[in-house]
Design a binder for these strands. Structure first.
Lengths: 376, 376
DNA sequence: TACTTCGCTGCAAAGGTTTGCAGAGAGATC
DNA sequence: GATCTCTCTGCAAACCTTTGCAGCGAAGTA
């Protein structure tokens, strides 16, 4: 039933190799022959079998995209950007969801390994050593995790968290809670580290609550704790948790931002739709998706090939592109943050508005600066 | 570099066919030999090349999932359910996003065709005839579209729309607007048809606005039109549009539900987080994902194989599983609907509460009934 | 002992494609 | 007219598996 290269060859009276070349190296075949072959192929509805092609070329023209949780609105912009970027380079993207499960991640990398030319690992939950081990099986680009010796795309959430804490301190908050993210998250550690340092500098006290699942429910479940902690401001690991917290506080009758200020991270589109609108640290997710694809495909020719073209012993040293890209974040101030109990009074250290890239939100949504290679 | 079956054979001193059988038919090989081979394979880090296997067996153990828009929160539950169901049957799911673009859909089906055993086509935007044509290339299950002769998973949005209109009419609304969905959407047509009929029965007038992009912005952009239309209630194609409309009305100073009632469709998790909370028609998305996978894999053995095992001429008649499943929907009443201008006055036809499956929302979220094969 | 049965293993073809190499013509150059 | 160059095409091996068939030795049966 499925029409193969052989059928086309028979129909157009040429050898299969000529048909093959008609598609993969058209300049090598006589224009007349070419049109004839193409006509026959069209007629018969022939489509090259990419799997068979991959078997010999070692190139599938697919890339895998492993995502911690598709339901998290943080990811779709990244996915779409990656897909669009890949499409331009004639690659297809296969997305897979791991449900925040480290074991599922490993399993998926293995399953994808032979079917794609490389894998984008987004917000991985597994251990560094496992990632390194897997990177020997298939080219990997890691997003939202820093690993020496592996290409990484990072977002400067440290700077973002710092800006957020400075913003809160500037508003007169001295007791601040941090809603931590999931275990195994590099971003969560980064935020915690930077927020802790910024709080110390600003003379504020930071209470860490967590780890928590990075979902609305994770935030909602901590509302009671937040109230009990007696803080006047909260920085959440991500917008989803911040939104859940908004809900939870509302249910407890706690007014935001009058009684408690809330800051999220990510600037998902939803954060403009809550009441109050969420103050948040915008992360350049689309840029991250594009960049990750670029880094993976950067050296098309460097990608390992199983086919005989890349002769054994030619390049024994495995590809080790260690470029790491850090993308900038930006604090977007909306309505969920307001004056704290110490507003107006003098505070130890720090000015009212820190040096971070703050911005009062404009209606059109944030324009996020991106770029900045920090190492390579 | 990549270790093949041959390396394992060499290392364990057996023929490659024995190694192959160790993995794909363990009962055929001597236990002693088996452990030796497995040990060598483990040692060398051997992983069967699924692509090569697929070349001969005709089975990739992958299924493709084509989605109109990953950013639409309607889809993630469906994706996750499909993935989980597939995993249980030792299948992997490759998700791809089409950006609501019919051309991208076709392109993706072609790209996936030879790399998966079947494709789930969710909310397709392309024409029926094209879908039928593509279904000859690869087994297809269609979600959210009815096509004779193809397996379909449908949600009874007609019933949902009817319930919504009856609910609104029961509250005393007689001028109702319908925010249509995207062109090419079966669901949109279905809603429009059923809502029109229900409005006629209830003695209400239905104004159709659209088609619109099925996004927040699509709803937001229609806020002005809604106000100008002078209606007291709106049924939107989906929750995202309803939420956008909520925003738009808020910006125009129109109070919901005091001045205008709003009903959405889908019951995405977000609809519980808006202010006011959204009244909506819950659709069984997870059930749809599970069902679609089941239908595709139902007859593992029926799937066409390119390998020689399925000899030519044995089953010439292509598989034509025409089972169609209709899943039930349910109206979930929250806070975005309230009494209309004719509340309390007598209305032509219909009782205050129609016969549809209405339910006052409970905090735990909806339990949706599913099932009901309507044809096969 | 001769024969069958059974469990295990090896052989080789097949699946659809790519690609290095060689060969066949045609045209150009001297 | 001989030689060279160049363009195009065919040949066949290779990629990594699976699987029908056949063979081999051991155990069981008569």
């Amino acid at each position: 039933m499925p029409v193969t290269i052989r059928d086309v060859a028979r129909a157009s009276g040429v050898h299969i190799s000529t048909v093959s070349r008609t598609f993969s190296a058209p300049h090598l075949v006589n224009p007349e022959t070419r049109v004839r072959v193409l006509a026959c192929a069209e007629d018969l509805g022939y489509r090259p079998n990419r799997a068979a092609r991959a078997l010999i070329t070692g190139r599938t023209h697919n890339i895998g995209l492993i995502i911690a949780d598709i339901a998290n609105p943080f990811f779709p912009p990244l996915i779409k950007a990656a897909e669009s970027q890949a499409r331009h380079r004639d690659y297809h993207v296969f997305v897979a969801d791991t449900n925040e499960d480290a074991a599922a991640e490993e399993e998926l990398v293995h399953a994808l390994a032979k079917q794609v030319d490389g894998v984008l690992l987004c917000s991985p939950r597994m251990s560094n050593s496992l990632i390194e081990q897997l990177s020997r099986e298939v080219p990997l680009v890691v997003v939202n995790r820093q690993l020496a010796g592996l290409p990484c795309v990072l977002m400067d959430v440290g700077q973002g968290a710092r800006s957020a804490i400075e913003h809160l301190a500037g508003l007169g908050h001295r007791e601040i809670a941090l809603l931590g993210g999931p275990r195994g998250s590099w971003t969560s550690r980064e935020i915690r580290r930077a927020a802790g340092a910024a709080a110390r500098t600003a003379g504020a006290e930071l209470t860490v609550l967590g780890p928590n699942p990075p979902t609305e429910h994770g935030g909602l479940a901590q509302a009671e704790q937040v109230r009990r902690a007696g803080v006047s401001a909260v920085l959440a690991y991500n917008d989803l948790m911040a939104i859940g917290l908004l809900e939870g506080l509302d249910a407890l009758g706690v007014a935001v931002p009058q009684e408690v200020s809330v800051v999220g991270v990510d600037d998902i589109s939803l954060s403009r739709l809550t009441r109050p609108k969420l103050t948040t640290v915008a992360t350049p997710t689309a840029a991250a998706g594009r960049t990750a694809v670029d880094m993976l495909l950067q050296h098309d020719t460097d990608l390992p090939r199983t086919g005989r073209a890349g002769g054994a012993g030619t390049t024994v040293g495995v590809r080790r592109t260690t470029a790491q890209v850090m993308l900038q974040t930006e604090l977007v101030i909306r309505d969920s943050t307001g004056p704290g109990p110490y507003a107006g009074r003098e505070r130890p250290g720090a000015t009212a508005e820190g040096p971070g890239p703050h911005r009062r939100a404009d209606p059109g949504g944030p324009r996020v600066a991106a770029g900045d290679v920090v190492a390579s």
